[in-house]
Amino acid sequence: MAIKRRSFLKLTGLTLLGSTLSTIIGNLLTRGEVKAKGYTQSPEALVGKRWVMVIDVKKCKEGRSTCGAKCIEACHTLHNVPLISDIKKEIKWIWEDTFEHAFPEQTEKYLEELFHGTPFLLLCNHCDNPPCVRVCPTKATFKNEEGIVMMDFHRCIGCRFCMAACPFGARSFNWFDPRPYIKKVNPEYPTRMKGVVEKCLFCYERLAQGKLPVCVEACPEKALIFGDLADENSEVNKILRERVALRRKAELGTKPSVFYLMS
């Protein structure tokens, strides 16, 4: 029996509708997540509940004339961050800026004078309540169990909603293919492609190997302290109890995980 055009179209339509619906329902049920099979941390891995970084501004300033900003260099070399001279298209994971730019809401004249010439290291704040994660339409950026705001470079569609949502200007976009701008490619870490967003990931790959973030390790002044805020006895907790620390734009409620020791 020959199939009629009308019934053929009906069948095709129904099939399409059915498969679309089942995909949507399936996605809603699993919340679009693919369940990873159970995995075990390697025994040497550093495990934490909420990783934070404390930056000793005074130490950083003292050593700045001799250190050559090793933290920045180490990070950008390790993570294949391209060196793009055009500041409109540049990519940076960790960089230094002035007090006025790091804390623009602190418009106190004496503070600005006090911190004149003091470098402030800026990087992703790994907020506990990250707006970038909230707005991402594909969950390409997400907070992992250790409090690190992660990026899946392969899932990112490059809509840059996260860049609009980040109040700290921590995110960079690959406006071009970044590979020609990488001086020496580190084969241990992936390079990115054009059209995706990237930022500091708190060296999650090094934590898994039991190593501290590379910027922390590279600093000759030991001005960067990394630790687990959830652990009452950790070094970061001890320091924050004793000394005056500020977080950038804390009033916005994003709960940044990078602290600046101001005294």
Partner: peptide, 18 residues
């Protein structure tokens, strides 16, 4: 979009918080 070929990721990974 920076990666237009991945636009359907929006449907693959539904994100009701966005």
């Amino acid at each position: 979009l920076g990666q237009p070929m991945r636009v359907l990721n929006v449907l693959r990974f539904l994100s009701p918080r966005s």
